[in-house]
Design a binder for these strands. Structure first.
Lengths: 183, 183, 183, 183
DNA sequence: GATGAATGAGTATTCATTCAT
DNA sequence: CATGAATGAATACTCATTCAT
C-alpha cells in the first residue's frame, strides 16, 4: 500500500468512527504512519482529501454495481438481484456506506455534488424510467425514487450490521423496498 | 424572548445551516446578542446546549403529534391523517426536522438516546403493533418500521421544501409510505 | 454561623485543598451555600477575601499563643512548652497552618506583609533577643531564627499529620529545634 | 538555544516571578518569542511543561551534587563541604531552587513525585544512614532529616539572596544545620 | 517524495466582577 | 442583606496549513 493509500484508508476509518469534522489531519497522519505534511502534498487541503475519498468510494461502488448487475433494461428480477447485491456488499463495506451517507449530509458536499450524491442510483435513472414506462414502477420522479430506495437500503444494512435483524430475513426486507415503488 | 430562548433559537438556526461541529459557541452568542459566557451559565457546555435543544424540540413534536392524532388504535384512516399532518408540520418546521435528523447521525447523540431518537414514532410502537395484529401492516419489527417511515417522511419534506415537488402531490407520496408497510 | 463566616470557612477548606488560584469565587459561593455576588458584598474582591482570611487566622493563632504561653522572659522551659503547644495545636488546626504557609509563598502576599508573615514569632522577636542575651540562644538574627523554627514546626506537623511519625516521639523532634538554635 | 530550550527558560523565569498558576502559556510563548502553539508541540499540555522543567532541573542538581561531593561514606568534613557547596550553588541558581520549592508545594506535583521531591537528598538517604550508624547523626528518620536540612538551606539561600545576611557568615549558618541533626 | 518544526487564528470554557431586583 | 443573571477578557489547547530541509 502506498502512503497515499494509507492516508485514504485511515481517513475513511476515522471519519466514520468519529465524524469528519472531529477528525484532525494530524490524527489521520499519525494513524497512517506518515508525516503530517504529506497529506498536503497529495491533497490540496483537508477538503481535497474528503472530496477525493468520496469520489474514489463512489466510483468503486458504481463500478461494482455496473459489473454485477445488468441495468440496460428494467425487470422485476434484475431489480431484486441488484437490491440484494447492494445489501450484501453494503454489509461487507459498511465503512464505505457510512462515509457516503455522512458525506451527503455534511457541509463538505458541494452543491454540484449534492444531487449526484443523493443516490447510488444516479446513473440508473434511465433504468428506473424504463421500469415506469413498462408499468412496473409507480409513475413518480426517478430522483426521489432513487433516494427512497437508497435510504431504505441504508437502514436495512445498519439494522443487520447492528445485529438487530438477520440477513436471512432479507426477503422480507426486500418486500418493503419493492412495495414502496412498484405500482 | 428571554436570553436563554434567544440562545436556543440562534443555535438551532446555525446548527442546521452550518452543522453542529462547525458552529462555534462564540458564533451562537454573537447571533443571539448575548455575552459568550452566558451560554455556559445556562448550559453546562456545548454538548449540554445541543442535548437541551434536542430534547425541547423532540418534546414539542411529540406533544403536537399526541394532541393532533388519535393513536389509541390503528386504522387505515388515522395512519394517513397522521402521516399527512407530519408532512405538513414538517414543512413548516423544517429547521426542527433537519436538526433532529442531523443530531441523530452526529457524535452528540448518546447511546441511550440513539434507540429512542431513531424515530418520531418511538412512543407509537404500540400503535404499529396494533396495526400488525389487525393484519393491516406487514408483520415486521416495529422499530425498523418506524425508522423507515420517518426517513421517508424526511425525504419527502426535503423534496417539497427544495421546490422539487409540490405539496399538492402529497397523495402520491403517501402511497409510497403506505405500500412500504401495509401488507 | 453567619453567611460571612460560612464564606470564610469554605474558602479556607478549598484554598488548602486545591490552592488559592485554583479555587474560584463561584466554587466558594456554592460550597458555602450563598449567592456568588455576596462574596463581593462582604469583601472588595477575591484578594480582599484572601487577605481577610489570612489576617483572621493569624490573629487567632497569635492570641492563642499569647494566652497559652508566657513570653515575657525566655527560659529553656517555656520555650519547650511553647514549641510543644505549637505542634499540638498545629495538628488540630492543620488547615489554618497549611493556609498560612501557602499564603506566605503565594503572589497574594503583599510586600508589607511578607516580613511580618514569615513567622508565628513575629511578635516574639523580643523573646528571642532575651534568650540570646541570656546566652541560651545562638547569637544570630532573630528573624532568621524565627523562620527556621517555624519551618521546622511545619515539617514536623506535616510529618505527624501524614502518619509518617507519631506524636509520641515529640520529644525527639523537639531536640532538633532546640539544638538548631540553642548555643 | 533551540526554541524548546527558550520555552523552558522563559517558563522558569516567569514561574518563579509570578507563580505557576498565574503564568499563562501565552505569556511564556511571547516571552520566549515563539508561537503559542509550539508549547503544545513539544509538551503535551501546561502540566507536561511544568513536569519536564522540574525533572530537568532536578537532574541538573542531582548531577552537580554527585560530581562535586563524595557521598559514599558520611564524615563530618564531607557533610560540611556538601552543605556549603549547596548554599553556594543555590545562590547562583536561585531560580532553580525557587522553582523546585514552589513546585513541591503546588498542585502540579504528583503523589508519586511528592516523596522523591521533598529533598535534594533523596538519593542520599544511605549517606545519612551511614552517619547515624557511625553515631555522628541523631537517630531519626532519614527522610525527615533530609527535608529539614533542605528547608533550612532554602531559608539561608533566600536570606542571603535578599541581602539580609552575608555569605561571609556562612560558617554560622552552617552551625544551625549541623546542630539540628548531629547527635 | 517525505519530514516534522513552526505558525497563529480559532475553540470551548472559566472566572472575577457588576448590577438590577 | 442577598440573589443570580449577565458580562467579556483571559485561558489552555487544537488545528489546518506552510515550508525549510
Amino acid at each position: 500500500m502506498t502512503k497515499k493509500e494509507k492516508i485514504l484508508k485511515s481517513a475513511l476509518t476515522l471519519f466514520v468512527r468519529d465524524g469528519i469534522d472531529a477528525t484532525s489531519t494530524a490524527r489521520i497522519a499519525k494513524e497512517s504512519g506518515v508525516a503530517s505534511g504529506l497529506i498536503f502534498h497529495y491533497f490540496k487541503n483537508k477538503d481535497g482529501l474528503v472530496q477525493t475519498l468520496f469520489l474514489e468510494l463512489k466510483n468503486k461502488i458504481s463500478e461494482l454495481n455496473r459489473t454485477r448487475n445488468d441495468l440496460s433494461c428494467f425487470t422485476r428480477e434484475n431489480f431484486k438481484t441488484m437490491w440484494m447485491n447492494g445489501i450484501r456488499s453494503g454489509i461487507n463495506e459498511i465503512e464505505t456506506i457510512r462515509f457516503i451517507h455522512q458525506f451527503k449530509y455534511s457541509r463538505y458536499i458541494r452543491l454540484e455534488e449534492r444531487e449526484k450524491g443523493k443516490s447510488f442510483f444516479t446513473e440508473q435513472h434511465a433504468y428506473f424510467r424504463d421500469g415506469i414506462q413498462k408499468g412496473i414502477l409507480k409513475n413518480m420522479d426517478v430522483e426521489l425514487m432513487g433516494e427512497i430506495v437508497f435510504e431504505q437500503m441504508l437502514l436495512v444494512i445498519t439494522y443487520i450490521q447492528e445485529g438487530r435483524g438477520s440477513i436471512e430475513d432479507i426477503e422480507s426486507y426486500y418486500k418493503i423496498a419493492r412495495d414502496s415503488i412498484f405500482s
